[in-house]
Amino acid sequence: MGCDGGTIPKRHELVKGPKKVEKVDKNAELAARWKYCALSTEKLRRPIVACDLGRLYNKDAVIEYLLDKSADRPNSEVASHLRGIKDIKELNLTDNPAWEGERRNTKGDRYEDMHCAMFICPVVGLEMNGKHRFCFLQTCGCVFSDRALKEVKTEICHKCGDPFKDENLVVLNGTKEEVEKLREKMEEKRAKATKKSKKNKVAETVAKPSDSKENPESTETVSSEGQTSTKNGGDNSQPVAEPPASSSTKVVTPSAATGSKRSIQTMEEKSETYKSLFTSHSSAKRTKDQTSNWVTHTPYHF
């Protein structure tokens, strides 16, 4: 068959059989879900956020996605349900004291434990590596293990003390069934929010015209003499009688009411020294003999 040295090829070398299904390493899959961003596939680093479906993201990656939702962006299907920054919650995570960081195996001569996680549960101390079920609270963003919430039942957050309900719990990196339940819960929540916003808009639009329609036919007109007359559907009521004029009453002239300008030189309450500061004073005026003519020169004069 063309082989050198008189070797005889075997059947499995000549006939290609069906390809074996490659099995995904569970440890690698868990590390990808709990140590890497679901959108940018980069390593998780603070600040870390989570959505209503329980997926973990880097906050800067989500902001970049919201600013540019182009189809060319890879892995955009994971964050297609995100509409704005309000759809994510920044997580309040607890650091693992046993985590040495990325520099612990720089030389490659040490065993790297894939199950060692960066964060742990603050109550029980379980590592957040995918082996244990973890949840976060939508109210404050604190993360706890499911075992801690079952063993220590309380309506107050163990870490920050804020009150919460069972409805505020969201499972992190749950199964397909749990993700479907969270999706239905998210859609119901958004539907209620849209209904409330529509009701508020309708209430505002109804309240505005109701104020103006309380007395639509009645209008008040003020005459130049100070009389007020009310009109109802075209019928004029009796004018208000004016008070009798007396020597003590002061009559305001239209010029004073409109704020007409007065010359400073005609003000009797101002002193002569104050009046001389302005150009309208008689001392500032000059005769024709005192004024000099303007002389202009052209470049041809010299």
Rank of each mutant, 00 (worst) to 15 (best):
C3E: 15
G6K: 03
I8A: 00
D25V: 08
L30Y: 07
L39S: 11
S40F: 07
T41C: 15
L44Q: 13
L44M: 05
R46W: 05
N58M: 08
V62H: 12
Y65C: 07
L67M: 12
A71R: 09
P74A: 07
S76D: 14
S80F: 11
H81N: 12
L82I: 15
R83T: 10
G84Q: 12
W99K: 04
R103C: 09
G108Y: 04
R110Q: 06
D113S: 08
I120C: 15
C121F: 01
V124T: 06
L126Q: 04
H132R: 07
C142L: 07
D146Y: 09
L149D: 00
C157Y: 02
K159P: 00
G161L: 03
D166Y: 00
L169T: 02
V171T: 11
L172I: 11
K176M: 04
E177P: 00
E178G: 02
E180P: 03
R183H: 11
K189E: 12
A191I: 08
K192Y: 10
K192H: 06
K199W: 04
E204W: 02
K208M: 13
S210Q: 09
S212T: 07
S212P: 00
K213T: 05
S223L: 13
T228P: 00
K231R: 15
N236P: 01
S237N: 13
P239T: 10
E242Q: 12
P244N: 09
P244M: 08
K250C: 06
K250V: 08
P254D: 12
A256S: 15
A257F: 08
T258W: 05
Q265V: 09
M267N: 08
S271D: 14
Y274F: 11
S280G: 10
D289Q: 13
T291E: 14
T298P: 02
